[in-house]
């Protein structure tokens, strides 16, 4: 039998999803660690941002890699989803779900919204086009005042709660995605399967709490300019 190109088979695509997902999850952790410097004060986060700017070629390399990963993740997801929809042309009149989770059932939806959120997030904080009035001030060292930009953004309820909502979807996405990726690359077995599901939920929930702590503390005035 002629073998298809591995990346074109169902398992090959699942593995692509898993590997890109794994790397993107790594970015999510790294990004969080950087963001959490906000709680150390204006100095810390602004200098973190400043030093990041100094590593421009590296940052751009990282950005291009991330863009690549996201593209592969999304294109593969689209391929898989189209095939999955085609696989059941006539829907059930009545269908009960037994074990599947909200996270699992909404991967495509959460993924799409997260993509929209990422674009907005980049416009908001990276390219600073959505809210120029609060994004372009400088601190006393003449560095970009990231601290002020973040805090003032999240003092606005629509931004704070918009971010919390988007992060909730990210949590759902990760809660299913994290253990799934290990299943897809064939690392799970009888004992590890249930553990992986629990760890996946716990890790994504911790990430979630850590991430939403930023907009919430800003909005409720625990972190002030």
């Amino acid at each position: 039998m002629n073998r298809d190109c591995p990346a074109q088979t169902s398992i090959g695509k699942k593995v692509l999803m898993a590997l890109t997902g794994l790397m993107l999850s790594g970015f999510i952790v790294g990004h969080l660690l950087g963001n959490l410097t906000i709680f150390a004060g204006r100095e810390w986060i602004n200098s973190y941002a400043y030093h990041l700017e100094e590593l421009k070629p590296l940052v751009w390399a990282a950005r291009i890699t991330l863009l690549g990963l996201v593209t592969i993740h999304i294109l593969t997801a689209i391929c898989l989803t189209i095939k999955n929809r085609q696989a059941r042309p006539v829907a059930y009149a009545k269908k009960e779900h037994q074990t599947t989770s909200v996270g699992a059932r909404t991967m495509a939806l959460t993924g799409t919204v997260i993509l929209a959120f990422i674009i907005f997030h980049l416009m908001h904080f990276t390219f600073r086009v959505t809210h120029p009035e609060i994004s372009n001030s400088l601190d006393e060292h003449g560095h970009r005042d990231v601290f002020k930009m973040v805090v003032m953004s999240f003092q606005r309820p629509e931004l704070a709660f918009g971010y919390v909502a988007a992060l909730t979807l990210l949590f759902l996405h990760l809660s299913h995605g994290l253990w799934s990726l290990f299943q897809s690359i064939g690392l799970l077995g009888e004992r590890t399967l249930p553990v992986a599901k629990k760890i996946s939920c716990a890790v994504s929930f911790i990430l979630y709490l850590a991430y939403i702590s930023i907009p919430l503390t800003c909005y409720f005035g625990l972190v002030k300019v």
């Binding site: 002629n2 298809d4 169902s10 695509k13 095939k83 699992a104 897809s184």
Partner: peptide
Amino acid sequence: TQMDKEGFGNCTNHG
């Protein structure tokens, strides 16, 4: 390969 050819969907780990 044959499974894919038959037009089944892909596993997304619903269980």
